[in-house]
């Protein structure tokens, strides 16, 4: 590249050759992005995953907090968050509704009300979105998953209490919906029509067994499950085959997590919300701790019983700071 630039500076190229050079460059970039679009791969994540190093020890930067809407009231015991349709959706569990904010944290609406009829909530918990912009909300008490359009109009019940007992965290990857069933201590995988495809894990305390899993997150072929009652994160592949366990640094017998909840993966790091210790741990791919965020408190960069978490394609980390009744946003 340097040689080409020097040649241009010293000798000058014919204009037709420069044009050809620029056109070829455009074509190359367009071809790369077309391929990435077709295979539904985020170029930033793709490159960061291929690089032989992680982002190092740099902590994400605190951006802002969302406490709710002035007009509609604050958040009450928020439990989970997702980012889809260029909107932030938060399960406002204590108020039995979902609040919607734009990317800057401005309130743009809400949906849902208390009840046990279709589209109503008793304990709205997990929330996620699909590529069509539909919003999926699990209700731990009504034992179902409701689907809403991007504005919050109820569309359908995807799975009900015949298929679910206590649904918690949700995640959609490759048109498959991953649901942590807290009471049954397993993760259930559905297609987006509600057909169950697979179950991962079973109740217990041993390897490959789960105890009250509250959250699930998928990155590539890896399914990360917060095994909340066992104070650890277990990793399976998308077909349910066990890969490894996170939380035990340097073969320690004690986990670094206490009641882990939300999980997010970004830039080669795995983020885990350790609810009772009020930290979010950042781990490398080998499960070694890189740094922590939070710590009990009410200041901007504190957390108090963090629960759900979501990391968007631009590396923004959304952490539900449940006891502080807010959402905090970091930039990875």
């Amino acid at each position: 590249m340097a040689g080409i630039i020097m040649e241009i500076v010293q000798k000058g190229w014919p204009i037709s050759r420069i044009k050809k050079f620029i056109y070829l460059g455009f074509l190359l970039v367009a071809a790369i992005f077309t391929v990435l679009y077709i295979v539904k791969t985020n170029p930033i994540n793709y490159v960061s995953d291929k690089l032989p190093f992680t982002l190092g020890n740099e902590k994400p930067r605190f951006l802002f907090s969302i406490y709710g809407s002035g007009m509609n009231g604050g958040l009450s015991k928020p439990m989970d968050v997702t980012f889809v349709n260029d909107r932030i959706y938060i399960t406002d569990t204590g108020n039995k509704r979902v609040q919607i904010f734009d990317r800057s944290g401005n309130s743009v609406g809400l949906f849902g009300k208390a009840g046990n009829k279709a589209g109503e909530f008793k304990f709205p918990y997990g929330i996620t979105g699909d590529s069509e912009g539909l919003i999926y909300v699990s209700d731990m008490r009504n034992a179902n998953i409701s689907v809403f359009d991007r504005a919050g109009s109820f569309v359908k019940i995807l799975a009900d209490n015949k298929q679910l007992n206590k649904p918690g965290g949700l995640y959609i990857s490759e048109n498959r919906l991953y649901v942590s069933d807290i009471a049954e201590s397993k993760v259930k995988v559905f297609d987006l029509n509600g057909k169950k495809l697979l179950e991962i894990g079973k109740a217990g305390r041993g390897k490959e067994e789960l105890n009250s899993p509250n959250s699930v997150s998928v990155e590539g072929n890896r399914v990360y499950i917060s095994d909340s009652g066992n104070d650890r994160v277990q990793v399976f592949d998308t077909e349910g085959k066990y890969i490894n366990t996170l939380g035990f640094e340097n073969n320690s017998k004690t986990s670094m997590f206490v009641n882990p909840r939300g999980i997010g993966v970004s830039g080669g790091r795995v983020f885990v919300a350790s609810k009772v210790t009020s930290y979010v741990f950042a781990l490398d791919q080998n499960g070694q701790k890189i740094f922590t965020l939070g710590g009990m408190g009410q200041e901007d960069e504190n957390l108090a019983l963090p629960n759900g978490m979501f990391i968007d394609e631009e590396g923004r980390i959304y952490i539900v700071d449940s006891a502080n009744q807010r959402l905090v946003v970091y930039q990875n």
Binding site: K166, N211, N214, N259, V276, L305
Partner: peptide
């Protein structure tokens, strides 16, 4: 004690999200 309200802490587990213990909310 660093909390004026410890109830949130109790409910981190006792709100039904850890099913091997009592859900005092419900």
């Amino acid at each position: 004690l660093q909390w004026a309200n410890v109830t949130d802490t109790c409910n981190a587990c006792h709100d039904g999200t850890i099913t091997t213990t009592y859900d005092v909310v419900y």
